[in-house]
């Protein structure tokens, strides 16, 4: 264990890094160098135990939330606010596979360069666009057609996520930089699938309102 100490801003005593001062129990400013995984005491990885993540999130909120500092000094209120803003961002990022892979790439030192277009995927995208254009949300069977498209789209997203998860696992044992650029390309695929699902949402909303 590293001996990482700092001076408490309130009692001026030396305290090990953490949320509260070892001596006076005052809330300590966050460590800006701490990444989202460290915040939840997790190793950087794509495969996370999401239930554990959420439980951890709630436990941290129970310690840090500004509501518990409403009657404390201005400095303590500010620190709690800053910590919770970061906690919220960390939680939102890690619980979402798309945001999580982007963040993990960054944490592993991947320099964002625009990945080269992937002709195979471009072809797929064009075909997918056509299926959407064929649906008229005003038609009577629109909801069931959209539901079918949705389960296909979800399956495609799931396959992509599994692929990304596998590639990250390989990277973490082999540390081969080539794999990261390959993941970055798959990130684009995930982004596209996400947008496609959002478009389906929009059409479903229209169809649902129409059906009444």
């Amino acid at each position: 264990m590293s001996f990482k100490n700092s001076v408490c801003w309130s009692c001026r005593g030396v305290t090990p890094a953490g949320v509260f001062c070892h001596t006076c129990d005052t809330i300590l400013p966050m460590d800006p160098g701490e990444n989202f995984f460290q915040l939840f005491h997790m190793e950087p990885a794509f495969d996370l135990d999401l239930a554990a993540l959420e439980q951890h999130y709630r436990e941290l909120q129970k310690k840090l939330h500004p509501d518990f500092f409403a009657q404390r000094s201005a400095m303590e209120r500010r620190i709690s606010m800053e910590r919770v803003i970061r906690l919220n961002e960390a939680w939102q990022t890690l619980q979402d596979p798309l945001l999580r892979s982007g963040y993990l790439l960054q944490t592993l030192g991947w320099q964002a360069v625009k990945p080269e277009p992937d002709p195979e995927f471009l072809y797929e995208v064009m075909a997918l666009r056509e299926t959407l254009e064929e649906v008229n949300p005003m038609e009577s069977n629109a909801l069931s057609r959209l539901a079918a498209l949705r389960s296909e789209a979800k399956a495609r997203m799931q396959t992509t996520i599994e692929k990304v998860s596998e590639m990250f696992r390989v990277y973490l044992t082999e540390k081969n930089g080539e794999i990261l650029s390959k993941i970055a390309r798959y990130l684009d695929r995930m982004r596209y699938h996400r947008r496609y699902l959002e478009e389906l949402d929009r059409l479903e909303d229209q169809a649902f309102e129409q059906e009444s």
């Binding site: 006076c24 009657q71 404390r72």
Partner: peptide, 19 residues
Amino acid sequence: EAKVDAERVLAAAGAALKE
């Protein structure tokens, strides 16, 4: 505000003395 801050300072000093 001033009282809250003073309370914090006293608590901190108390904890430091104890330790």
